[in-house]
Design a protein around this nucleic acid. Structure first.
Lengths: 188, 188
DNA sequence: GGGATCATGTAACAGGTTACATGATTCA
DNA sequence: TGAATCATGTAACCTGTTACATGATCCC
């Protein structure tokens, strides 16, 4: 899920100002509110954030160091584990499968890829563009054949299916054009 | 939710071949599988379908007539109530608020509007287009101002927010062009 | 008799939303 | 002293997915 990977990303970036993969709930929550850039794409209420932290701890991608002493109110500091770091890298290297996931999950990937490693961001954009291109070709094929997934159907049915495919194609093409703009904005 | 309104729509259309607002689970389920046009947009497993029927019954938009006699295996026939019919009309007259809802909820509305009342479908398309136009204007304004929702942020932050707004604008414009094509395909 | 189809569900789980609960510390 | 902020959660509820349970009837 994008929310959990965003938490891994924030820890990798700079949990609390030291670049050491450390961070705690309240501090991470700040990135998901107000005028923060991530919040333009992904909202995360405190309740869900703490829920995700527990789950990430359970699967071993982050680890709790026990309640931090010397801090009042007591805060629970987490650190990114090697497993968490490699999971983040895997996720950042993988484009999203569906066009509708670009609006949320891909933008989150792009946000972290640009900050952690600009070369990786360029690769991610190129791979996402490839995938969208293939989807575009498949949709064009279906539209050309008047393909409804199986057989005929009424005229009205075929007109509706044409509208559905036409919309998907238009959204996919808009995404491809955007990916191109994003690539060329990053390079020069 | 789109799934529940789709059930109301199927009952209004022709629950089981009589145009009388009657229908039962197994029969409705057929519309959400295989090569059915609705299934290209909305999938509904039997479990969820029966769940929705119970809920629609609870809120009074459909009513169960008691297990139908004379049918074996026994089927539970539901009929659309006046409240359900007016809820369906309300929903069909209302465009969706966000661009991402066009892919699913708007397509479902369009499917039923075209079948129940082509004039209503034309009105729906026009109103959705209006709404998208306004969104487009607002996004253009934000992009022009370099608006990030509050104050400045780093250069990298502003570049990212620019990408986010650019993507939304592109998707909204693709939707507007599609709505135009859908309108002119319906008229002549 | 037995497999396909008709017909209605339940159970278990995964994930999200909203609102509230709890209590310490800081600072005007 | 009391409001804002720091800090961590719980509870209740809704949505959705997958898989399975149950049993009748039709037709070969």
């Amino acid at each position: 899920m994008p929310a959990e990977h965003a938490i891994l990303g924030l820890l990798a970036l700079d949990g609390d100002g030291a670049g050491d993969g450390l961070g705690y709930g309240y501090d991470l929550a700040r990135h998901f509110g107000d005028g923060q850039p991530l919040a333009a794409v992904l909202r995360l209420e405190p309740g869900m954030l703490y829920h995700h932290l527990k789950k990430l701890d359970r699967v071993g991608w982050i680890a709790a160091d026990g309640p931090a002493p010397e801090t009042r109110p007591a805060r629970q500091v987490y650190r990114l584990t090697p497993a968490g770091r490699s999971e983040l890298a895997r996720w950042l290297g993988e484009p999203v499968a569906r066009t509708r996931e670009i609006r949320l999950e891909f933008l989150v990937k792009l946000y972290f890829a640009r900050r952690l490693d600009p070369a990786r961001a360029a690769r991610l954009l190129a791979e996402q563009r490839d995938r969208c291109r293939r989807l575009e070709g498949s949709l064009e094929g279906q539209l050309g054949r008047g393909d409804d997934g199986s057989s005929a159907g009424s005229t009205q049915d075929r007109a509706f299916l044409h509208l559905v495919l036409d919309l998907r194609l238009a959204q996919t093409r808009a995404a491809i054009a955007w990916l191109d703009r994003a690539s060329s904005a990053a390079e020069p």
